[in-house]
Amino acid sequence: MKIGELAKRAGMAASAIRFYEAKGLLKIASRQANGYRDYPPEAVTLLTIIGDAQQAGFSLEEIKRLLPADVSSWRHDELIAILQRKVADIEALEARLAHSKAQIQSLVQLIESKPEGMDCKLNAARVMAGLGLAVDK
């Protein structure tokens, strides 16, 4: 199939397909006598895998290492190791985000616990002091 049909079937722009080819992710196109690319049906599946992997947070370099030269010859142990590393990366990110969320929620609670009748300037000084920050008067 030509690149236009592949782009339609894969749901992406032809320029994206050419980009993936240039990056070495898509190596299965052959050239017709007129120079047009000719893609086999499995190119749709491969592009879907590439798109899904990007959505899951894999870099193009990681995807390149994941994809076998021949789609029928996945390197099982290497694939599992890469996927497990990505899960560990995601878990570390989740922990950092949870910590950041807790800090922000504490700050919101500290700001909202303003004593009744205290003006905003004094409340700001109270909050800064509560955070251990010096406030110039």
Rank of each mutant, 00 (worst) to 15 (best):
124 A>G: 04
102 A>S: 14
81 A>F: 02
81 A>N: 11
103 Q>F: 01
49 I>V: 15
21 E>M: 08
59 S>C: 12
17 I>M: 06
112 E>L: 14
134 A>C: 01
13 A>Y: 06
59 S>Y: 06
61 E>P: 03
124 A>I: 12
104 I>Q: 12
125 A>S: 09
87 V>D: 15
74 W>S: 07
124 A>H: 08
21 E>L: 07
19 F>H: 15
15 S>L: 01
12 M>E: 08
118 M>L: 15
24 G>R: 09
69 A>H: 11
21 E>H: 11
72 S>Y: 07
131 L>R: 05
102 A>N: 13
119 D>G: 10
94 E>M: 11
31 R>H: 10
55 Q>A: 12
27 K>V: 12
80 I>W: 02
77 D>W: 01
58 F>E: 10
66 L>F: 03
48 T>E: 13
1 M>W: 01
51 G>M: 06
55 Q>T: 02
57 G>H: 10
18 R>E: 12
111 I>W: 10
30 S>H: 13
105 Q>R: 11
92 A>T: 04
103 Q>R: 14
135 V>H: 05
130 G>H: 09
135 V>K: 05
61 E>Q: 09
54 Q>T: 01
58 F>A: 11
43 A>W: 06
62 E>W: 03
49 I>H: 07
23 K>H: 04
76 H>I: 15
133 L>W: 04
15 S>P: 00
14 A>V: 07
51 G>T: 08
125 A>K: 14
65 R>I: 08
103 Q>W: 01
91 E>I: 01
46 L>V: 12
10 A>W: 00
99 H>E: 15
51 G>P: 05
13 A>W: 00
27 K>W: 00
38 D>P: 00
